[in-house]
Design a protein around this nucleic acid. Structure first.
Lengths: 297, 297
DNA sequence: ATCCTTACATGCGGTAAATTCATGTAAGGT
DNA sequence: ACCTTACATGAATTTACCGCATGTAAGGAT
């Protein structure tokens, strides 16, 4: 079902996301000429050009970029609106947009995949959409409605959202076999190594308190895979979730720099928007999350 | 222009607001049969009946009531979306929905009509929509986007909104010529009259602190006109804004119970939603308000 | 009880909008 | 110079939507 629809906007968003008319015709299931008409009509209605196109390539105009963001968001919220009206029928429909930080899968004490399986095994007609982003971005996405639920170690909690702690994640410092500390005596592993060797930090969620670090320049990464890469290079120390660093430990590539003061724990929370008629699909997924989280605890 | 449109939802909302198909055909500018089709198709798409109709009268089903509220709200926000895209063209379009408490007009030091005139004298294509409600309702309407700006004496301010004080309003206690206090000696006018005569309060914004009042039953009104009526009855004392009570004073119908402790002042604020891409029309209107407020001060 | 009126439903036909198909055009590559 | 790519355009066609005429069901008047 599609109550609030608009061909022009849908075409516009599809064209932007496909990077041109030609590919968008498959995404939309209409011919290229129809898309050409739609974009022309959209620009006629708006009174300004939204994109440059032709053999020279496809690109959005300045206004087009703003219009695209607004259009994408409004189409999202319109899909949610449709789903809300379908909820009244009792069926579970619409999109379920889940946001999370990376390496949530494998989090000890929180089998997310079980929750997802549990959710999908129910009779449903829901399209899942999973995005990975930083806690800060996830907060924004929750507020704007771009995601319905998010799982992350939220440090600064905002009043618009509702948080439920679901598990914790232990972090340790690692170095690779190429690093000077790899063969160091365990008595050398003290917090002051932080002042002697370059360390790599995650751009969001600074596990190692920055005030402990004196050495510049620091490397900054946006996700765990990148962190592992820089550690593998042998040039950096880096903190990883223990469950995530495990595989490098097992292969003998990394060494965990074990010291009581070089362990950190962050708390993972489930966040949703407060005070909002919640869709059935979202409600059920939250139940599923809590069910697996409790079972694991 | 109308980008995101939906005939079915528009018909539904119109039918509800007109209380039936017959009247809605004039509001929508289509025939009754077309409306019948639209509602049928809507119900077909939703999978449930939204209203009972026929000779027995028109009424929404339970689900229909929820669907109506959602549909009305989404159509509003969709109109705003259209206006946002038009903003990029540089034109001032869309709706400007202003909310206020009653008797804002005439507020000393705040010529609202000048602000409106100022706004409308600009080149524009804006449809105004003015609603009158209590500060509490206005707060809700602002958050949900049902109004863009609101003017009221806001007592409890919420973090989602941004308030700018624009003027103050003096209140005094009044009685009518039928009231025992009308001819009382001015020395008798002391705060303890509150404990001896019934008083009428506004349901929102209790001007006279309720703790000063001992006498039950109290009359409660939702707006100033009603307050004046009850005072006119001679059975109640009541607080009115001085600028509003003036005309009854001049006609000799009311007496102001003047005493230093029987005067109250409330501060009127302009409220808008925080952190939101603001439309040009809203921005300009805010400027106009501030301009007339400053000039008056 | 019958007829009338009100309020909505339905079938049919026309019109306007949207889409496809076929073709045109402009820019870059060979 | 020719081909290819990527989009534009025009005619034909399909589709959707609407109005008209008519049907139906229930309440009220005579």
């Amino acid at each position: 079902m599609k109550l609030l629809r608009n061909n022009l906007l849908e075409a516009f968003v599809a064209v932007v996301e496909c990077g041109g008319f030609t590919d968008a015709q498959y995404a939309l299931g209409i011919t290229q000429s129809a898309i050409s008409c739609r974009i022309r009509d959209l620009e006629l209605a708006l009174g300004y050009r939204v994109c440059e196109r032709g053999r020279g390539g496809f690109c959005l105009t300045e206004r087009g970029q703003i219009a695209y963001k607004k259009a994408r968001d409004v189409l999202r919220s319109v899909r949610d609106f449709d789903a809300e009206l379908m909820d009244l029928r009792g069926t579970i429909t619409g999109e379920l947009r889940i946001g999370m930080v990376d390496t949530v899968n494998g989090l000890p004490g929180f089998p997310l995949v079980s929750a997802i399986r549990r959710f999908l095994n129910r009779e449903n007609d829901v399209r899942l959409e999973v995005s990975v982003a930083s806690p800060t971005d996830l907060t924004q996405s929750l507020i704007s409605g771009n995601v319905h639920v998010a799982i992350a170690p939220f440090r600064n909690k905002v009043s618009e959202l509702e948080y439920t702690e679901i598990c914790t994640e232990d972090h340790m410092l690692y170095c690779s076999s190429d690093h000077p500390l790899f063969h160091a005596d365990s008595r050398e592993i003290t917090p002051d190594i932080l002042t002697r060797y370059p360390i790599c930090q995650r751009s969001y969620d600074k596990i190692v308190p920055p005030k402990l670090i004196t050495l510049a320049p620091q490397a900054v990464v946006a996700n765990m895979e990148a962190m592992a890469m820089l550690i593998e290079s042998g040039c950096y120390l880096g903190a990883l979730p223990v469950h995530f660093g495990q595989k490098w430990i097992e292969s003998g590539q990394f060494r965990a720099l074990d010291h009581p003061d070089l362990r950190w724990t962050s708390a993972f929370s489930l966040a949703v928007r407060k005070s909002q008629a919640r869709r059935r699909a979202v409600e059920l997924f939250l139940n599923d999350i809590m069910a697996v989280a409790h079972k694991a605890a």
